[in-house]
């Protein structure tokens, strides 16, 4: 255990990597960490991808054709926004209204980019791929990484696996349409919640982290009835902003240590 006052161990990769370990075990740890991150990412990809079935079926039932459903899954590629788009269209709304609802829900992907930018490659084709694959699941898988390599492995494994399975199952859902059983019957909605919780779990070692997570969940539920779908998660992000602003109340030493970790 590190004598670290911050609840942020998983993200402060270089600090964790330099943790008094000698070359040998450190390299083995790193390989195990990358393998673990890849397994987790792949599991998320399969579980989330299956949800593409319901998206494909719902999209065609809402009046989109097969190609429109596929463009949404391949190019928009962010589940919440896609469901919002077809929801508005299916409810008789305009295409502009559907696009606005989708973009409202997509704002949180911008936040993920802020968090991930330190650890992922910039520029070039991989920079564009990185942006396109930035969604709830890839950001969450990256967040469980304990080293920069683990963060990257989790991000790419989850991002690529979700992309492949999501598009594949969108196609199946759009073609098979109403003949597809409701994924809810398989408990896939609970599986998604469990996946998010499992990704959160390793970060809850400190009381402050637990308090932030619980407060965020509370804010999200409290604002759900009054805000359009998707915004409650953004409202909950304000909890992290508020907690982060409290930095002044910490001891100078803790702040300095955090500064070192933050800048790496």
């Amino acid at each position: 255990m590190r004598p670290d006052p911050s609840p942020l161990e998983p993200v402060s990769g270089d600090a964790a990597r330099g943790l008094g370990a000698e070359g040998g075990p450190e390299v083995a740890d790193e390989a195990a960490e990358v393998a673990r991150a890849r397994r987790t990412g792949l599991s998320i990809g399969v579980a989330t991808g299956l949800y593409g079935l319901s998206f494909g079926a719902l999209a065609t039932a809402s009046g989109l054709d097969l190609w429109q459903a596929m463009v949404l899954s391949a190019v928009m590629f962010t589940g919440g926004s896609q469901f919002a788009f077809v929801g508005v269209v299916g409810g008789g709304g305009s295409a502009i209204g559907a696009a606005l609802a989708a973009l409202l829900l997509g704002v949180r992907n911008t936040l993920y980019g802020l968090v991930l930018t330190r650890d992922l490659p910039r520029g070039g084709l991989r920079g564009l791929a990185r942006a396109q694959l930035t969604i709830d699941e890839s950001a969450a898988a990256a967040a469980t990484g304990r080293t920069p390599a683990g963060i990257r492995a989790g991000f790419w494994a989850a991002g690529i696996a979700v992309y492949v399975f999501w598009n594949l199952f969108t196609l199946v859902g759009a073609i098979a349409g109403q003949h597809i059983a409701d994924p809810g019957a398989w408990g896939l909605d609970a599986a998604a919640a469990a996946a998010f919780l499992a990704l959160l779990w390793p970060r809850l070692r400190r009381r402050e982290a637990v308090a932030i997570a619980v407060a965020a969940a509370f804010v999200a539920l409290l604002t759900t009835p009054v805000l359009p779908a998707g915004l409650p998660v953004l409202a909950a992000a304000l909890v992290a902003v508020a907690a982060g602003m409290r930095v002044r109340t910490r001891s100078r030493g803790a702040e300095q240590q955090h500064l070192e970790e933050g800048t790496r």
Binding site: A140, R203, A213, A215
Partner: peptide, 10 residues
């Protein structure tokens, strides 16, 4: 660094 905790909780 606190954002993922809040977003995941939500």
């Amino acid at each position: 660094t606190l954002l993922p905790i809040a977003l995941l909780g939500a």
